[in-house]
């Protein structure tokens, strides 16, 4: 962290160079392969404007993301308290730990056939997939934060006569904050992954459009969809980090 600040402008130049090189490689490879296999960047850029203006793609993406937020919100609402509980109480750690380790290694895609049997392919199905993909990563990150709270701060709070709620608000919450932001952004990456996967499987929403675009003659629309998804992911996680920095300036320095 410390070393990056004097180089910030050089860093930005380097990143721009990286993007430029990638785009040139993409253009050359695309022209060599032909747009049926790998459309060059120039073609995709033109197509991008068409896709943005077609009045179908962006609304599909928006409604998919809105639906995703339900499962993601539920994942945070369950994952954060559970992670704190496991981090602070030995019994909860022992009781939930086997299930958490099991669920973290379980592939969300493998749950999809079962969830379709349970919920059909509608709203509840998508919400359940996103929830299950999000919650365990939020639990793990919050758990690590809650375990690492310095006992000296807790001792200090106790000796100044802080009550349970006061201790939580003044000590636990500020100490947890970096982990909450990290957990929320890792969870968001997994939520977006799960949303796209679920939609591609049952061919609805944005994921469904993406899957079907793979059948068209040119790969340009498909690559546009991929670019859009990249943008969504980068903006979403970057936005969360920005909010974290604004709400709690100690976030950057405390980040592990």
């Amino acid at each position: 962290m410390a070393e990056s600040s004097p180089f910030r402008s050089a860093g930005r130049l380097g990143s721009l160079a990286g993007i430029a090189i990638a785009l040139v490689v993409w253009e050359v490879a695309g022209r060599a392969a032909g747009s049926a296999r790998f459309a060059p960047f120039s073609e995709v850029a033109r197509e991008f404007l068409t896709v943005l203006g077609d009045g179908l793609t962006l609304p599909a993406l928006g409604s998919s993301l809105l639906q995703m937020l339900v499962g993601y919100g539920a994942g945070l609402a369950v994952g954060v308290p559970l992670g704190v509980l496991m981090g602070r109480q030995a019994w909860a750690d022992r009781a939930f730990q086997p299930w958490v380790s099991m669920m973290v290694v379980t592939s969300t895609a493998a749950l999809v056939p079962l969830l379709i049997v349970l919920f059909g392919t509608g709203f509840w199905f998508r919400t359940a997939v996103v929830f299950l993909a999000t919650v365990w990563y939020v639990v793990i990150t919050t758990y690590q934060g809650a375990r690492g709270i310095d006992p000296r701060y807790l001792g200090a709070a106790r000796s100044f006569g802080a009550g349970g709620w006061q201790t939580f608000r003044m000590v636990h919450l500020p100490a947890l904050f970096p982990y909450l932001i990290t957990g929320a952004s890792v969870g968001l990456v997994h939520a977006i992954r799960a949303m796209v996967m679920a939609e591609m499987y049952v061919l609805i929403g944005f994921g469904g459009r993406l899957q079907q675009t793979g059948l068209s003659i040119s790969t340009a629309p498909l690559l546009c969809y991929l670019l859009l998804l990249m943008l969504v992911g980068v903006v979403a996680t970057g936005g969360l980090r920005w909010i974290g920095g604004r709400l709690a300036p100690w976030y950057e320095e405390a980040r592990a």
Binding site: S15, V196, L210, T213, L222, L226, L229, V234
Partner: peptide
């Protein structure tokens, strides 16, 4: 510096979207 934007982009992209 060179690779960071690419890695960030691919990390943010749900890999399953590459299926087609």
């Amino acid at each position: 510096r060179l690779l960071d934007p690419l890695v960030t982009a691919f990390y943010s992209l749900p890999t399953v979207a590459l299926v087609p």
